[in-house]
Amino acid sequence: MARWGWASFLLRRLTGTFVVVVLLSVGVFGLLYLAPGSIQQTLLGTRPATPETIAAIQARYHLNDPVAVQYLRWLGGAVSGDLGVSIRTGMPVSGMLGGRLSLTLALTGYGTLLAALVGIPLGIVGALRQGRTADRLVVTAGVVGLSAPPFAAGLLLLVVFTGDLGWFPGYGAGEGFADTLWHLTLPAVALAAGAVGLLIRFTRAALVRELDQDYVVFARARGLGAPLVLWYAMRNSLVPILTATGLIVTGMLVGTVLVEVTFALPGLGSLLVDSVTFKDVPVVQALALLLTLLIAAVNLLVDLGYSAVDPRVRLGGRTS
Rank of each mutant, 00 (worst) to 15 (best):
A78E: 10
V79Q: 10
D82C: 08
L83F: 15
L83C: 06
V85N: 09
S86I: 11
S86N: 11
I87T: 15
R88I: 05
P92H: 14
S94Y: 09
G95K: 12
M96T: 12
G98R: 09
R100K: 10
L101E: 00
A106I: 02
T108I: 01
G109A: 05
G111F: 00
L113E: 05
L113F: 13
L113G: 04
L114A: 03
A116R: 00
G119H: 08
I120E: 04
A127R: 06
L128Q: 13
L128H: 07
R129M: 11
T133E: 06
A134Y: 00
V138H: 11
A141Y: 08
V144R: 00
G145D: 10
S147V: 11
P150G: 05
A153W: 02
A153C: 04
L158S: 06
T162E: 03
W167R: 02
W167C: 05
G174I: 05
E175L: 03
G176P: 04
F177C: 00
A178D: 01
A178I: 09
T180H: 03
W182G: 02
H183E: 03
L184D: 07
L186G: 04
V189Y: 08
A190C: 08
A195H: 00
V196P: 00
G197H: 00
I200C: 05
V208K: 03
E210A: 11
L211M: 15
L211A: 13
L211Q: 13
D214V: 12
D214H: 09
D214Q: 15
V217S: 14
V217I: 13
F218R: 09
F218Y: 11
